[in-house]
Amino acid sequence: MTWIFLAAGLVLAGLAVLGVAGARAAAAARTLTREVAAAKARLERGQPRLTPRKDETTAPGGVPSGLKTGTR
């Protein structure tokens, strides 16, 4: 009978450990979601500065003039 109580206690202890680990993972996922949303908002605000501009270095085909295509 003692073995049954010991086994049940070990099962409960294991479930408690898994519950704590699951709660920590859920909290980390919420934090990561907030950080990703904040980074996305910062990138969207700065998007006009990040888009490529048409200038003298871009050839009509869209390849910068310094790059040779089709050669090795």
Results as ranks from 00 to 15, higher is better:
residue 14 G to Q: 03
residue 48 P to I: 01
residue 68 K to S: 05
residue 47 Q to I: 06
residue 5 F to V: 15
residue 66 G to C: 10
residue 13 A to S: 13
residue 71 T to Q: 10
residue 9 G to T: 10
residue 31 T to E: 10
residue 54 K to Y: 09
residue 11 V to A: 15
residue 52 P to Q: 03
residue 3 W to V: 12
residue 20 V to H: 04
residue 35 E to Y: 01
residue 9 G to M: 13
residue 17 V to M: 09
residue 61 G to Q: 07
residue 32 L to Q: 15
residue 63 V to M: 15
residue 1 M to G: 14
residue 4 I to M: 07
residue 5 F to S: 15
residue 1 M to E: 14
residue 70 G to F: 01
residue 19 G to T: 05
residue 68 K to Q: 06
residue 30 R to T: 09
residue 1 M to V: 11
residue 8 A to N: 11
residue 33 T to W: 02
residue 40 K to F: 00
residue 35 E to P: 00
residue 13 A to Q: 11
residue 28 A to H: 03
residue 69 T to F: 00
residue 62 G to C: 13
residue 4 I to W: 01
residue 15 L to H: 05
residue 32 L to N: 14
residue 29 A to S: 09
residue 39 A to T: 09
residue 1 M to S: 14
residue 16 A to P: 01
residue 4 I to P: 00
residue 18 L to H: 09
residue 66 G to N: 10
residue 4 I to D: 11
residue 13 A to D: 11
residue 29 A to W: 01
residue 29 A to I: 02
residue 70 G to S: 06
residue 19 G to A: 10
residue 62 G to I: 03
residue 27 A to W: 01
residue 52 P to I: 00
residue 51 T to F: 00
residue 49 R to E: 14
residue 23 A to C: 10
residue 54 K to W: 07
residue 43 L to V: 08
residue 18 L to E: 14
residue 28 A to R: 11
residue 50 L to C: 05
residue 37 A to P: 00
residue 72 R to W: 04
residue 26 A to V: 03
residue 19 G to C: 07
residue 14 G to V: 02
residue 54 K to L: 15
residue 6 L to P: 03
residue 71 T to G: 12
residue 51 T to K: 08
residue 72 R to I: 05
residue 5 F to G: 15
residue 58 T to W: 03
residue 57 T to D: 06
residue 46 G to M: 05
residue 39 A to M: 08
residue 31 T to D: 12
residue 2 T to G: 11
residue 21 A to K: 12
residue 32 L to T: 14
residue 70 G to K: 04
residue 23 A to H: 05
residue 22 G to L: 02
residue 41 A to Q: 06
residue 58 T to C: 09
residue 14 G to W: 00
residue 62 G to V: 04
residue 21 A to G: 14
residue 44 E to K: 05
residue 68 K to P: 03
residue 61 G to P: 02
residue 5 F to E: 15
residue 23 A to I: 08
residue 10 L to I: 06
residue 28 A to M: 06
residue 4 I to N: 09
residue 39 A to L: 12
residue 67 L to N: 10
residue 47 Q to N: 11
residue 50 L to R: 10
residue 69 T to K: 05
residue 61 G to Y: 02
residue 59 A to C: 12
residue 39 A to Y: 01
residue 42 R to I: 06
residue 41 A to L: 04
residue 30 R to Q: 14
residue 17 V to R: 09
residue 54 K to D: 15
residue 3 W to C: 12
residue 68 K to G: 07
residue 32 L to M: 14
residue 71 T to H: 08
residue 25 A to M: 08
residue 54 K to N: 14
residue 24 R to L: 09
residue 50 L to G: 05
residue 48 P to N: 04
residue 20 V to A: 09
residue 36 V to A: 11
residue 10 L to N: 15
residue 57 T to N: 11
residue 54 K to T: 15
residue 67 L to P: 00
residue 53 R to H: 05
residue 27 A to L: 05
residue 55 D to M: 02
residue 56 E to K: 13
residue 60 P to F: 01
residue 53 R to Y: 00
residue 48 P to H: 01
residue 33 T to E: 11
residue 30 R to G: 15
residue 60 P to H: 04
residue 30 R to Y: 03
residue 7 A to E: 12
residue 61 G to V: 01
residue 11 V to L: 15
residue 18 L to N: 14
residue 49 R to F: 06
